[in-house]
Write a protein that binds this DNA or RNA. Structure first.
Lengths: 341, 341
DNA sequence: AGTTAGCACTCATAAGGTAAGAGTGCTAAC
DNA sequence: GTTAGCACTCTTACCTTATGAGTGCTAACT
């Protein structure tokens, strides 16, 4: 399974050249890239061996070689040096992300935009959602005689709101009753506990004169559910059309990305803080020709959400991976800092 | 400039067949569609005349005819009967749009989704923004010792919020001072009047002990600006790739749609309640192969925003136009109704 | 004058053939 | 283990040809 040094060099050179040009790499053009004093025939023998072992593929007999997903995998795990970000790249990321952004969702939108731009791929991220998120605040802002805007704020900084219609007039007494119930039963609780069963119980305790607030409680349940769930944010879907190797699949891929529940599960599925799935390593058919890179960001030291990238398998991993890692760390730091203020 | 009855019939038949098949229409296949007892030669003579007059185009000498933008224009203005929506279509629209939606933005997102789905084009809409919008409410919800969420609500039902950091602790006294200033100077005013100049004036009246609220006032200016401006909502961009005639332009077109200021101006530019721009009638080069259909929706009887459609020029106008009109009216009614409660 | 049959003509498209070029695999010699 | 040499494969581009759809024009017809 392991490769001797020469084969490693050849594999790395093929991948790097292929990533650059997009064309199958032939033995002659490899000679120039490699420092070894060998003939093309020897390279050919080695390349044939690498095909045999599954690290390379041959589009057709008389074509050069193209890395297989196994080849990319070996390269990423063993051969690739992760380039440090240079100042320009680092500054580009930092300048695009406002430091004083207090809303995780907007911050992630920004992060997605940067990532989609610098990679020319589709960026995808999920808003913070982890075990044990608490309800920090619930507010009701009357905006009409019977309608109110409900706002929920979680311990991870997630804000959700919804306009909701009460069963009757929102008199000061009704508002007070609402706040009493909320602060007694919900504030400080875990957001996952706000089940409809729990709300039934709460509703049962509401005295007859304040039954008008029941729709508001239902509204609270809605926004609590919305806040406890990770939202999926996408950016740069149309970038996928810029990659020749994806062109046939691009539409199907974009269709796939629209189903956010599935995507959300996919992003959360990896155990590691950083994960790459190359081509056929992906469980979904629609991603068979794509790479998926997922990194998790920490809030208060706890893995809370993900930032990911979807593109063709032909990616400059050595460049992209450090960028994603840096961006992910940065986002985590900014959100954490925003919460501590 | 006007066409005799026979030419009108021929033009209409060509357009309808072309819209259906996407293939240039030849004289023979037209014979079957037309009820006239004529020979193909006569049809050919007439078609040649219609080309001469600019209503049709010929991809190459030995091909059938394709409608020009002038042809579509004549068809829409004079020949096309607007199909009434049948029950299925009407129900499809109604069921996709929740009646009790209190937030215009979410309602429009829904509307866009329906429209993009039923037309297989890109839907675009703008949130309500018209002259004389008033500030109905401003709220500050403290979410940390020094940070607060600011919320603004306009007379058209637009809600905007932003998290903002104050210059110091948000003590009850500070909050009270903030509300005093706001209700004295902003509530009930026209939202366009909240200029930075006005805020300067207001800021000058703040007593020294409450200078900490100045950043909050800046935040209010931000959300006021955001609320006074029409947002552009897009849906179904990738649908453009499904139209063969757009394939070359699709990426460029999507890029064009990303610039929301320009798009917003474009949508607002039409004077009429309903407007169609076909192909070259569009002022932007990027829309040269596309049709843009824009309808305005009324809130409280006043034109307040737009719902539009972008697709190829080859559209089933007779079907689409009634759908858009119906959808637009429905959206206007629901928003208006939501405000009256 | 309007209509039509007939026919030569144009052009896109598909299919087949050929040549060039890149790259390979294999063999035999080093 | 390495390499020069060479036959072989396969893609690509280009040309030719045939087919067919559709036209424009002319001359005859009503």
């Amino acid at each position: 399974m392991d490769l001797n040094e020469r084969r490693q060099k050849i594999l790395a050179a093929i991948i790097e050249q292929y990533v650059k040009t997009g064309e199958p790499v032939g033995s002659k053009s490899l000679l120039e890239a490699l420092q070894l004093s060998l003939s093309s025939a020897t390279i050919r023998n080695e390349m044939a061996e690498l095909v045999e072992m599954g690290y390379l593929e041959q589009p057709h007999t008389s074509a050069g070689r193209v890395p297989s997903h196994k080849g990319y995998r070996y390269y990423i795990d063993n051969l690739m040096g992760e380039n440090e970000l240079n100042d320009v790249q680092r500054r580009r990321i930092e300048q695009s992300i406002p430091k004083n952004m207090h809303e995780p969702e907007r911050l992630l939108e920004q992060a997605n935009e940067v990532l989609a731009n610098i990679t020319n791929c589709t960026a995808v991220s999920t808003t913070p959602a982890c075990e044990g998120v608490l309800i920090r605040k619930i507010e009701m802002i009357p905006i009409g005689s019977r309608t109110a805007m409900l706002v929920i704020l979680t311990s991870t900084g997630i804000l959700k709101s919804e306009v909701c219609r009460a069963g009757g007039e929102l008199t000061p007494a009704v508002c007070e009753a609402f706040y009493n119930i909320i602060s007694r039963t919900l504030i400080g609780r875990r957001i996952d506990d706000v089940s409809s069963a729990m709300l039934q119980t709460i509703a049962a305790t509401v005295s007859d004169e304040f039954l008008t607030i029941l729709p508001l409680l239902a509204g609270v349940a809605d926004i609590a559910a919305a806040a406890s769930q990770a939202d999926v944010l996408l950016e740069g879907q149309s970038n996928l059309f810029n990659h020749r190797e994806l062109e046939e699949n691009a539409l199907e891929l974009i269709e796939f990305l629209k189903k956010s529940e599935r995507l959300s599960r996919l992003l959360a599925s990896g155990k590691a803080k950083f994960d790459i799935k190359i081509g056929e390593e992906n469980e979904y058919r629609q991603l068979k020709n794509s790479s998926l890179i997922v990194a998790k960001y920490n809030i208060k030291g706890k893995e809370s959400g993900t930032i990911g990238l979807i593109g063709p398998t032909r990616l400059n991993y050595a460049q992209l991976i450090p960028s994603i890692k840096y961006l992910t760390d940065l986002v985590g730091r900014i959100i954490t800092q925003g919460l501590e203020e």
